[in-house]
Design a binder for these strands. Sequence first.
DNA 1: TTTTACCCTATAGTTTTAGTAGATTATCTA
DNA 2: TAGATAATCTACTAAAACTATAGGGTAAAA
Lengths: 135, 135
Amino acid sequence: MLSKKTKYGLKALTFLAKVKDREPIQIAEIAKHENISQKFLESILLTLRRNGFLGSKKGKGGGYYLIKEPEDILMTTVMRVLEGPIAMVPCVSLNFYEKCDDCPDEEGCSVHKLMLQVRDSALEVYRNNTLADLL
Amino acid sequence: MLSKKTKYGLKALTFLAKVKDREPIQIAEIAKHENISQKFLESILLTLRRNGFLGSKKGKGGGYYLIKEPEDILMTTVMRVLEGPIAMVPCVSLNFYEKCDDCPDEEGCSVHKLMLQVRDSALEVYRNNTLADLL
DNA sequence: TTTTACCCTATAGTTTTAGTAGATTATCTA
DNA sequence: TAGATAATCTACTAAAACTATAGGGTAAAA
């Protein structure tokens, strides 16, 4: 299942991508427009800022704004930041690899075999989609 | 993330698919061979039996055995039984569809758009793999 | 001094991953 | 045929992890 964190994060990004002249939008406004718990959204926007997608401005007239062009925001990056590994199993993860402790033979593992294909197919989708494609 | 339930279930299925003449294998043996908690595996095998993948036999010489040919066991079915919906969001699920309560416009939703592609790509993988392909 | 993002903590709820205890059924043996 | 044994079956419980959200205070910008 996609976490609400990711869902909300994606919605916030697409919302901000539509804003004219990238002027700052307040958390409250995004939350209201997208039906998101404001406090939850707060933490999501924070991680999006820390990971280089958004900029922020404090005080009156402040808020969040996109600091990249939507065309340059790949879904692979967004998903990894918000949702974590794209692979469904650590032993087939490119960026978060970990050996299964219960599995002696990775090459002979049926789960490994299947999940490798699933990872590749998901990866292809995410690589072929930028934020601009979702608008 | 893939649940351990699914992971163990897949491992058990591939293990049983390799058994000569489909003779019954005890839970304990599968659990030991695949490093799985026996009691947990017990409940997994039960749902696999209830869903028509396995047969069981009680008493001495009893155990579980495959009742279909591995070539006839599609991963779509297995995944839906063990893991649940293949879609990451209910609003793009074929078998478990549900409307998002926070989302007024499904067609205009960026998450919907993206997850539809992810679902289709995953579905293609699962459709192209039977249990036999994992051996 | 108001407005906004920032930061930390707590918590209710849910899901996952088991573990415990015993009932039930089939087979084997005396 | 009776009883012992071997296995699945069932239900309940529980610990742990994760998710989603709320509260309250701090810092910075206007």
